Amino acid sequence: MSRTRGTSRARRISSLGLAAAVTRAATAGLRAKPPGGRERWARTNYAGRTVEWYAGPACAFAAATGTARVRPAAGLAVLVAGVCGAYDDVAGAGDARRGFRAHLTALRDGEVTSGAVKLLGISAAGLVAGASLKERAVDKVLAGVVIAGAAHLVNLVDVRPGRAAAAVVALGAPGLLRKGPGAELAAAAVGAALAVLPDDLGERAMMGDTGAHALGAALGTAVVAGNGRAGLVVHAAALVAAAVHGEARGA
């Protein structure tokens, strides 16, 4: 029994450490040789300060890599969430529309916004991952809601420096106390978040939708892997409520 606990603890530590190390290495690599030039990677934060965007793709890549080691389907969901977030970060710059309603209304009128691509892409990825991680149909759907909902939740709180990364650490930390794949998936999310938190808090970097959605999806896969139907129902209900509340506030 003690050997099993030791192995589980080692896997969690390894998953956390790997995600943190990959995030830092990827950030340093992008900073040293930024594709397209440094101007393409500069962003303006809420206070009007210019910050780096390297942390977003870096932590998304790290979270996808870390979760894929545990469950390939989880890694795919995280990767798609990051890619969709990156598309919105780039193509959606300057688009003042916020919330599901605005983007779905535009889609109904024939305009495919970056927000709609993000919404549909992450939802589809969540459902695909949920179908792989769970066996029963109801659980597959609940899992998809949890993964997509968690991705949206982390992005929802990303309104000030450090909030999204801190939220991932706070929400993911309890999962580290568990055993099994859920704990390892949570460790990957927490490790990547911890790696970007200092620069994010110091207003030197931002994750953008890229990092927020990827880390949120990683948290969602951890919840899915670590819970049965009752837990999935509770988490899905809470995430839907948070999304509705966020939509109402943004209206």
Rank of each mutant, 00 (worst) to 15 (best):
1 M>A: 10
8 S>Q: 15
17 G>V: 06
26 A>M: 08
31 R>A: 15
32 A>M: 12
32 A>Y: 09
36 G>H: 11
49 R>E: 15
54 Y>M: 12
56 G>Q: 08
60 A>V: 08
62 A>R: 04
68 A>G: 06
73 A>M: 12
73 A>V: 12
77 A>V: 03
85 G>H: 03
89 D>E: 11
90 V>P: 01
103 H>E: 03
104 L>Q: 01
109 D>L: 11
112 V>Y: 00
114 S>F: 04
115 G>I: 08
117 V>S: 03
119 L>D: 03
121 G>Q: 05
121 G>T: 10
121 G>C: 06
122 I>N: 07
129 A>T: 08
134 K>R: 15
138 V>P: 01
139 D>W: 03
139 D>K: 06
142 L>T: 09
150 A>Y: 04
158 D>T: 00
162 G>I: 09
167 A>D: 09
167 A>P: 06
167 A>H: 06
168 V>H: 06
169 V>Y: 00
173 A>S: 15
175 G>I: 02
176 L>M: 12
178 R>K: 10
178 R>V: 08
181 P>D: 11
182 G>D: 02
182 G>Y: 06
184 E>P: 00
188 A>S: 10
189 A>I: 05
193 A>C: 07
199 D>M: 07
199 D>N: 02
205 A>M: 07
206 M>T: 13
206 M>P: 10
208 G>D: 11
211 G>E: 01
217 A>D: 11
220 G>H: 00
221 T>R: 01
225 A>N: 01
228 G>R: 13
229 R>N: 07
236 A>S: 08
243 A>Q: 09
244 V>E: 04
245 H>P: 00
251 A>G: 14
